[in-house]
Design a protein around this nucleic acid. Structure first.
Length: 428
RNA sequence: GGACAGGUGGCCGAGCGGUUUAAGGCACACGCUUGGAAAGCGUGCGUGGUGUAACAGCCACCGCGGGUUCGAAUCCCGCCCUGUCCGCCA
């Protein structure tokens, strides 16, 4: 949600931000609605003030037992104009809100120009791609060979884009999640949270999922949304609140399943664990002052990268261009992990600084130590990491020629000391 | 699912047709007091909108939406939410 006052003061900057998003300028149009809106409000308020004054006179007169017919007649004569004025003001105000609430956040100055993912800019790489002495398999081939990654059963029971993980792979997923949570809570300073997975409209609206992305979420027939990411419940922990500055920053982490209908993704990434209707993810959410958010964004991205470093997985970090960012974000880093089976870097984390965009929608404010009143908070969210895709990366990067998979050092204590996930039994 | 009770500022809480301009308290800020602190005393302090160069002023907001009325936090209707008890249930 945008602040119309900002648009009033800096229409050029607003339009420039939209342009970076690949959108046409809108400030002139919005300001015209705003002009009409304010005129309507002024007119309406003038009449309201008149009515109020007259009503007070009537009250005083009646108290004294004097007649008040003249004043009552005058109020009655205002009736029609009052109704119209209030309706006009309400209609224009609503119109402006509807226009503003569907617009994306404005990119920060250091976000690169560009239309789509081709214009994203790589900012660093870490780790070396392994030299395989054999042709590496992809995770589906590895997982299905042992029967521990079972898509066939999932299709019968739930349909496409679901999976059963079994035995070592089920445990590996659990180990990954636990490893990540431990890292974030002990070294990262995040508070572990186990949130609800069903949320109300207002929570989905608060982070910007609604009204635009209703079709990307699952909805229950009694009105709940299944969370598409733990960002939704975690960020909404501060909705409708006024925090003390001393409490900031707040840092939350959660391991949850995420549910996405993938309505617009028919035919994309149909193979394997990459794009499912239900997938596990460890999420990070920070709530900060406006002054803290840029540094917190770097810190959060570093926290996500740390997971990959400890797992020994090669990755690169890119900054998304204006045209490729999610709507709530003002700056986003994606982290892409190297997948030998696909011979490509694939997204495994996305860390966004949302500025005050979500805070405005949620009503999330704080009281500054200095100065009066309240200010909107800044919110940030990032995956650290998408656990299913991390499992893919571990399988593909740590595979051996016989189909066994070496367990990364960092995970062994979570796997009961297991050194290696066994190769599939030889065919008889 | 059934019955009952409730939703008032950052928090607690009074008000239940017109001097409410939402009392009072807590918290917070500043000052006085003090060797320093606590306590005490004093002052300030809701949110949003509109308006202004900045003040001032004005309007709205007592869960949300309607209605009654010259006038609604207060009365009426609908909805949402919370709590308690009962039922069901891992």
């Amino acid at each position: 949600m945008h602040d119309i006052r900002f648009i009033r003061e800096s229409p050029g900057a607003f339009d420039a931000g939209l342009k970076k998003r690949g959108l046409a300028p809108l400030s002139a149009e919005l300001l015209e609605i705003d002009r009409l809106r304010r005129a309507a409000i002024s007119g309406s308020e003038g009449l309201q003030a008149k009515r109020k004054a007259l009503s007070q006179q009537i009250g005083i007169a009646k108290r004294k037992g004097e007649p008040a017919d003249a004043a009552m007649a005058e109020v009655a004569s205002l009736e029609e104009a009052l109704k119209k004025g209030e309706a006009d003001a309400a209609r224009l105000d609503e119109q402006l809100t509807h226009r503003l609430e569907v617009l994306p956040n404005l990119p920060l100055d250091d976000v690169p120009e560009g239309a789509d993912e081709h214009d994203n800019v790589e900012i660093r790489r870490h780790g070396n791609q392994r030299n395989f002495s054999f042709p590496p398999k992809d995770h589906v081939a590895l997982g299905e060979a042992t029967g521990e990654m079972d898509f066939a059963s999932a299709v019968r029971i739930s349909g496409s884009r679901f999976v059963f993980l079994k035995a070592h792979l089920a445990r590996l997923e659990r180990a990954l999640a636990q490893f990540m949570l431990d890292l974030h809570t002990t070294e990262g300073g995040y508070t572990e949270v186990n949130p609800p997975l069903l949320v109300r409209d207002n929570a989905a609206y608060g982070v910007g999922q609604l009204p635009k992305f209703a079709e990307d979420m699952f909805h229950t027939d009694n009105g709940y949304w299944l969370v598409p990411t733990a960002e939704v419940p975690l960020t909404n922990l501060v909705n409708d609140t006024v925090l003390d500055e001393a409490a900031l920053p707040l840092r939350f982490t959660a391991f949850t399943p995420c549910f996405r209908s993938e309505a617009g993704a028919a035919g994309k990434d149909t193979r394997g664990l990459i794009r499912l209707h239900q997938f596990p993810k460890v999420e990070l959410v920070s709530v900060t002052t406006p002054e803290q958010s840029a540094a917190e964004h770097e810190r959060m991205t570093g926290q996500a990268e740390e997971v990959l470093k400890r797992l020994g997985l090669p990755f690169r970090t890119i900054v998304l261009c204006g045209g490729d960012m999610g709507p709530a974000s003002r700056k986003t880093y994606d982290i892409e992990v190297w997948l030998p089976g696909q011979n490509a870097y694939r997204e495994i984390s996305s860390c966004s600084n949302c500025g005050d965009y979500q805070a405005r929608r949620m009503g999330a404010r704080y009281r500054p130590k200095e100065g009066k009143g309240t200010r909107f908070l800044h919110t940030l969210n990032g995956s650290a990491l998408a656990v299913g895709r991390t499992l893919v990366a571990v399988l593909e990067n740590y595979q051996n020629e016989d189909g066994s998979v070496t367990v990364p050092e960092a995970l062994r204590s979570y796997m009961g000391g297991l050194q290696s996930i066994p190769a599939p039994a030889a065919k008889k």
